[in-house]
Structures are given as C-alpha cells and as structure tokens.
C-alpha cells in the first residue's frame, strides 16, 4: 500500500473507530451536540434584553457590531475548537490508558505521532459535526444567520487550528506524564477560552488581563474571524494577525511534536506507559 494511501486509511480508521464508540453512547452524544446551544440560550435572551430593534447599542459602540448573538456564536465555535484541542487528544490517550488499549495501539508498526494526528483529526471531525448542529439549532431556534461565507475566514481558522492541535500534542504528552490532568485541563481551558475573548470583546478586560489576552495567539485568530465575518475592525491589522497565527502554527506544531516524542521516550525508559 502506498505511503499516502496507508496514512489516510489509518487516519480514517481512527476517526471511524472514535465515531462508532461515540455513537454507542447515544445520550452522551445527544448532550454533546445540544449542550452548547443550552449554554447559549440564556446569553441570547440577555442580549435581547440589552438590545433595541435587535441592535445592542453599547455593544455596537465597543465592537463595531450590534449583532451581539453572532459575535458570541463565533466565539462559541472557536471555544469548541480550543476545548477539543485541550480535551480531544489528551482525553483520548487517557481513555486508551484506562481501558487498556493504549499499548495495543502503540504496538502497531506506525508512528505514534501519526496515531496522535489521527486522534486530532477525529477530534476535529467530532467538533465540526457539533458545530453544524449548533449552527442549525441556532438558526432554527433563534433565527441566527452568518451571512458572510465561512471560507473567507479559513485563512485564519486553519493556522489557528494547526497551532491549537500542535499545542494538543504537547498536552497529550503532559497527560502521558501526569496520567490524570483533568483539573489542569479544566482550569487552563477555561482561562484560555475566556481570555481569548470567546464570549466577550477583549477590549473590555482590565489592562493586566488584556495584556495576557493579547499574548494568546487564539485572541488574534478569533478576532480575525469575527472581523471578516462580521465586518468589524480588528484589534491589529489583519496582516499582522495572519502572521501571528502562522508563527503560532509553526512553533506549536513543531514544539508539540517534539515534546510528545520526548515524553514518549521518557515513558519507555521509566516504564510508566501502562500505569494510570
């Protein structure tokens, strides 16, 4: 089998396996799909309470758009990907550890980075499926529409995802080391999602928190996507945001792979792979 075809087949096998396992827990799957819209519902009504004629005037003055709900919806989408990067690969490894299947996977004659990449694609597919449901439900329940085509934001979304999943590689390494990183994952995920402005414009943050926010590459990705899809002015010129995201993607994908390889080598030396 040719190298590329075999690689695609391995990735597809991982995605298919994860989707099948997910579907064997139908209630969890249902909740995973509808949960984001449940969180969004009170925000929607709060937004309406602050709006007149569907325009939130104060919000318009701060951000350049009165469409509060679409602003938040785009933030929810970005937050879903950030959470997937945090939880997706690390949790997938953790699940394999606790169920006892990790060693069986790692005994296969394929690169462990490819196995991890397969898990990241799997996580991406599940998150994207989730987003389709969020958008469809948002449209049906609240009449939400994003009129600008999504592909225009792709140039910013793609490097952000690559960087995020590079970060996910490093995080998966951390899970291999710490075994149970749930609390750390929760706290970091919350801080990164919140400070990158997934549910509000970062401009409203007090200066110290704004400084942290501006140090997070995700802030620029989210800002660029909102700027393009909502036609609002970006925090810094889009060209700079693009450059920041490309550097983020390069640095984090390389660093993430490196860290994961080092941790893999470490657990092979210390013999802690099968411990959980």
């Amino acid at each position: 089998m040719s190298g590329l075809l075999a690689t695609v087949r391995i990735i597809w096998a991982i995605v298919k396996k994860d989707l099948l396992v997910m579907l064997r827990y139908p209630l969890n799957t249902f909740m995973m799909m509808v949960e984001p819209i449940m969180w969004l519902t009170p925000v929607y009504f709060l937004g309406r309470a602050f709006s007149s004629n569907s325009v939130a005037r104060g919000f318009l003055a701060t951000t350049g758009t009165g469409d509060f709900m679409t602003f938040v919806l785009l933030g929810t989408i970005a937050q879903s990907y950030i959470s997937a990067a945090f939880w997706g690969m690390g949790m997938a490894l953790r699940n394999d550890m606790t169920s006892g299947t990790l060693e069986a996977n790692w005994l296969a004659p394929v690169s462990r980075l490819l196995l991890l990449f397969g898990k990241s694609v799997s996580s991406l597919v599940r998150t994207s499926l989730n987003l389709v449901v969020i958008l469809a439900l948002g449209n049906q329940l609240f009449g939400l529409e994003i009129s600008a085509p999504f592909w225009k934001a792709g140039a910013y979304l793609l490097p952000m995802l690559i960087g995020l999943y590079g970060f996910g590689f490093a995080y998966a390494g951390l899970v291999l080391l710490l075994k149970d990183a749930n609390v750390l994952t929760d706290v970091t995920n919350f801080l990164v999602s919140t400070l990158s402005g997934s549910s509000f414009p970062v401009k409203v943050l007090p200066t110290p928190l704004l400084m942290i926010s501006l140090a997070l590459p995700m802030t620029y990705g989210l800002d660029a996507i909102r700027s393009i899809l909502l036609g609002i002015p970006p925090l810094v010129a889009l060209g700079w945001e693009s450059l920041i995201l490309i550097i983020f993607a390069l640095v984090f994908s390389l660093a993430g792979s490196y860290i994961f390889r080092r941790v893999d080598q470490h657990v092979r030396r210390t013999g802690t792979l099968s411990m959980y």
Partner: peptide
C-alpha cells in the same frame, strides 16, 4: 504479534469484527 493485558487490549464498545478492522488498518 503481541498479547499483553489480554482481554483489556481491545475496544469493548466495538464489535469483534470492528476491532479487527481497526487494527488491520493500523497494520496497513
């Protein structure tokens, strides 16, 4: 071919056939 950890080394939420299909892909 390795059997380590015995019965816990396969996915219990997949069928036997699905397990083997998955690992066949990993073994190319």
């Amino acid at each position: 071919g390795t059997v380590l950890g015995g019965e816990r080394s396969t996915y219990w939420k997949l069928t036997g056939r699905e397990n083997l299909e998955y690992f066949a892909a990993l073994y190319q």
